[in-house]
Design a protein around this nucleic acid. Structure first.
Length: 342
DNA sequence: AAGGCGTGGGT
DNA sequence: TACCCAAGCCT
């Protein structure tokens, strides 16, 4: 049966593979390891439709490892703004520079695993897709497809070792990269989380969850804790057509990104505590809401347009060019709300 | 080794 | 609405 699953899925993939910019077109050059690696980093916890415009922008501007490695940090972080999980961008740049130093990206899973920002999934994916090696590629799609194929009752994340072993058992020696991409295409388009389209699925006859009549109940997962609510204040301080920005520290939330000055993000509304300068702040009537991975944030917006004469620590950025500052989405939302309020 | 770490889409 | 989820990695 394992042989049958791989062969059936690869036949389906040959007819139904999605046309994605990091995949080699039929008759085109072989897959470019740089493009495969870059796409895999961008795709970590991020959907294909979100990644595509960023991938096009990055590859047009930085077509290979050397070009990316030579770029300044701030330019790369700014280009990444809005894509989220900003540690990926810092690790991506460190990885590009390591690859430039090595001369080429390694072509084995074990060596790939040592690169910054390359974990078990990405190492296996690059080894298989870019270099044709047999590797067991397990992402969220594969976890879902496999847990349904075998109707696994053990909940995630505890079931990960079992899922990896089962994925290994159905991974073919040849075309492991296509097999991995086929599993992910299947998971993204047919074996979806909420309403799987089982009648279109090439693996329907091999699927224990389909046979059991409730495929959407797999994979079983342990419940997640509710997100806590936090509150804060964002400060818009403008002088002579320029607004005050800050550079956030490299570690932690939104690390290494330019940002509006903020006070602390705490359990109850803090007022203007943490303001970058002691002036008369005007609190706008409505603030912004933003949801991060592990907490929900309601922020008041404090505005001061009267010039203070004392020196202020930070980055003065032209208000007319604020879109080019590379602000994370939470701050872009604030900028838009402030613009509408004035 | 469990929790920190973004954002947008889907239901 | 308020969740859940998405081509995970790092510490």
């Amino acid at each position: 049966m394992p042989d049958n699953i791989a062969a059936t899925l690869l036949d389906w993939y040959d007819l139904n593979a999605r046309d994605l910019p990091w995949r080699a077109r039929p008759g085109a050059n072989a897959t470019d390891p740089y493009r495969v690696w870059l796409s895999e980093v961008m795709l970590q916890q991020t959907q294909v439709a979100t990644v595509i415009p960023y991938f096009e922008k990055f590859t047009a501007r930085w077509p290979d490892f050397a070009a990316l490695a030579a770029e300044e940090d701030a330019e790369v972080m700014s280009a990444w703004a809005g894509l989220g999980y900003y540690a990926r961008a810092r690790n991506m740049l460190a990885c590009a520079r390591e690859v430039a130093r090595l001369g080429a990206i390694p072509d084995t899973e074990a060596e790939l695993l040592r690169l910054p920002g390359v974990g078990g999934y990405t190492a296996a994916a690059v080894a298989a897709i870019a270099f044709g090696r047999r590797a067991v590629v397990v992402d969220g799609n594969v976890e879902r497809v496999v847990s349904r194929l075998f109707a696994l009752s053990d909940p995630l994340p505890g079931a990960k070792p079992q899922i990896r072993a089962l994925t290994d058992s159905i991974t073919p020696d040849a075309r492991a990269g296509d097999f991995a991409q086929a599993m992910m295409d299947l998971g993204a388009t047919i074996c979806t989380a909420r309403s799987p389209r089982c009648l279109l699925c090439p693996l329907r006859s091999a699927c224990a969850a389909f046979a059991g009549g409730a495929p959407e109940t797999f994979p079983v997962k342990t419940k997640k804790a509710a997100k806590p609510q936090r509150y804060g204040t964002l400060f818009w301080f403008e002088r002579d057509g320029q607004v005050l920005l800050v550079q956030r520290p490299d570690k932690g939330l939104l690390g290494g990104m330019r940002a509006l000055p903020t006070g602390p993000w705490v359990e109850s509304p803090p007022g203007i505590e943490g303001a970058p300068v002691a002036v008369e702040w005007r609190i706008l009537g409505s603030g912004i809401t933003h949801v991060f991975t592990h907490f929900r944030l309601d922020c008041a917006l404090a505005v001061a347009t009267i010039g203070a004469q004392e020196a202020v620590q930070g980055i003065w950025w032209p208000v007319a060019e604020i879109e080019s500052a590379g602000l994370p989405t939470v701050f872009a939302k604030a900028v838009e709300a402030i613009r509408r309020a004035r």
